[in-house]
Design a protein around this nucleic acid. Structure first.
Lengths: 339, 339
DNA sequence: TTGTAGGCGTTATCAT
DNA sequence: ATGATAACGCCTACAA
């Protein structure tokens, strides 16, 4: 059980009695090769269990690794996991493999992962920026022609492609839906930090909807929580106001879950709720949860197509692609406002 | 915007007026280097924006890529996503990067991904086998000393390390919990194919619990569905039996969701339910869902530790590591059996 | 149809 | 303390 050296192309060549180049030709379907030679080469490949070394090939051929690097905040989050899955399927179809890293939503890890990927000479970079990220350091790579696409949130300090949800439009639609059911005081449960792109955009959509309906903006109706439990607390504070909201809009999936938990604990089945981002069991809740659904798989696939186009030589200017959202009506968002 | 060549170690060396090897020594803290030389080299590195090429380094140094390959069925599934996240965190701490691929639960994609990873000369391989997988083809890699760890389900046709949930024990505990609340007819909603390792083990746990309680096994109480909707149908069939179950055990998260949906649609709040694998909103359901929770993050971390130990030279025999489950009592599993 | 020479960017070895 | 040379495994360009 000695860990003997792997056979190389030269080993195969020697076995057959030809040159490495001939083996290379056979394996890559490259130049012309005699039928008999081809067969003898294939035979030797099988016999020795030869597997081409992609590392060596990549290095010689493009000085680029046939891989793309993806940085996401958290792989366990189904939203980001699905995005990553969409990316993987699309790039694998082109013979590229996916390298991923968890930034845990910290700028330090994000930078360190990006540095590692660059050192590996990935063919392209895809990043879901962490909240405190700054991407000026990537300017050099951009001008050097490395395709870089930002997902879910745009880059900071860098002009680059990005693929994001129609956050503002989606949030506006969700809040307008509540207003259409008679609500005049709609609470907003958001995440932190308030400066986060998605939070800002969705909050703008909330204000857009209020303004379009001629409703005043009331600062006390805006609360924030950074995780499910905190969002539940935020919801409780809103419900405890002197003039409480009759409907709630939750700015992301954690906020939605927090709001659902809080309403459930308070046994309040009269408060309307629309959440941004869908949840697996949304239809099993009581009442079933109405949401503004995102499309993470499409987001990943769209970003991958953009990257592939760039790899194929698309030199058009950087653009921001909006992935549409969809209002999924299930019940919680249609509870009427009390008289 | 000409895509100029990246600076290489030789470029840095020329800039300073030394040899590439000297630069290498500085960067790797290798041999002895004069303090002044070191400073001038670092200066040039900054000036040129030099980044070492990991591809070239890996090729020269170990003939092994400083990466580990992970094959999972579906990245969007929070269970597998969390497993992957656990793996990534653990291996990154050791300077390894993670390469992932979606097998979509098909043996073909799984094999093709494994082949790609092997061609890249990854340092180790981690695989969540697809249902129809066969791993005899990896025997050669095993004897050659490549660390291979199987996750969630063991290898087929290959003796190798594996890290799996305590499926049988967990299922037995969940079913025993139902029996302890007076139920004598407990339905089993499983996934397909029935030959799948996790399905078999959990089903065994179900039978263990029945036997321990002296209850007869009734084949008609076992139904199957391959997705949420099918599981809902399976649940409906069980409820429509002449002598229907008063409690249900769901063999995985999809089965749980199907059962929850079916019970909700049928407005049956009297049927007890315990699910295997936790769900995000389980506590918001009515009644809140009692589950046998798995620990995917721990599973990923455990597997990663095993791989790292192997990389460090651990040559002990292959072992199967069980990750314990935990019964999370929330309400649905404690509904009493009717008199 | 096949072979030869050279180089991708790095590090090991031996010399100076 | 530093340099020269070769090598890792493969591919490109040209020659035979």
């Amino acid at each position: 059980m000695c860990a003997m050296r792997r056979p190389t192309m030269t080993d195969v060549a020697r076995e057959v009695g030809v040159t490495a180049k001939t083996v290379s030709r056979v394996l890559n379907g490259d130049g012309p090769v005699a039928v008999e030679t081809r067969e003898r080469v294939m035979e030797a490949v099988r016999k020795l269990g030869y597997q081409p070394n992609l590392m060596a090939r990549n290095m010689r051929v493009g000085a680029r690794d046939a891989a793309i690097g993806l940085v996401i905040p958290e792989m366990g989050n189904p939203f980001f996991g699905t995005v990553a899955g969409g990316v993987e399927s699309a790039v694998r179809a082109r013979g590229l493999t996916l390298i991923v890293g968890n930034s845990s939503e910290t700028a330090e890890l994000e930078q360190s992962l990006i540095a590692t990927f660059l050192a590996r000479r990935v063919s392209a970079l895809m990043v879901v920026p962490s909240a405190a990220g700054d991407h000026r350091h990537l300017r050099g790579e951009r001008v050097a022609g490395l395709p870089i696409v930002f997902l879910d949130r745009p880059a900071v300090g860098l002009t680059a492609d990005s693929v994001v949800s129609a956050n503002r439009e989606g949030a506006r639609e969700g809040v307008a839906h509540l207003i259409a059911h008679g609500h005049r005081r709609v609470g907003f449960v958001g995440d932190v930090p308030a400066a986060l792109y998605t939070r800002r955009e969705r909050f703008q959509g909330y204000r857009d909807a209020l303004e379009a309906a001629g409703l005043p903006f009331d600062r006390s109706l805006v609360e924030t929580g950074h995780d499910q439990e905190a969002a539940a607390g935020a919801t409780m504070r809103l419900l405890a106001l002197d003039d409480p909201p009759t409907a709630l809009f939750a700015g992301n999936n954690l906020a939605s879950m927090g709001a659902v938990v809080a309403l459930s604990r308070a046994r309040r089945k009269d408060v309307a709720l629309v959440g941004f981002d869908d949840l697996p069991l949304a239809e099993c809740l009581d009442p079933p949860l109405t949401v503004v659904a995102q499309d993470p798989a499409r987001m990943g696939a769209t970003a991958a197509e953009l990257v592939l186009a760039r790899l194929d030589g698309d030199r058009s200017r950087a653009r921001r692609t909006l992935v549409p959202t969809r209002l999924v009506v299930r019940g919680s968002g249609e509870l009427p406002a009390p008289r």
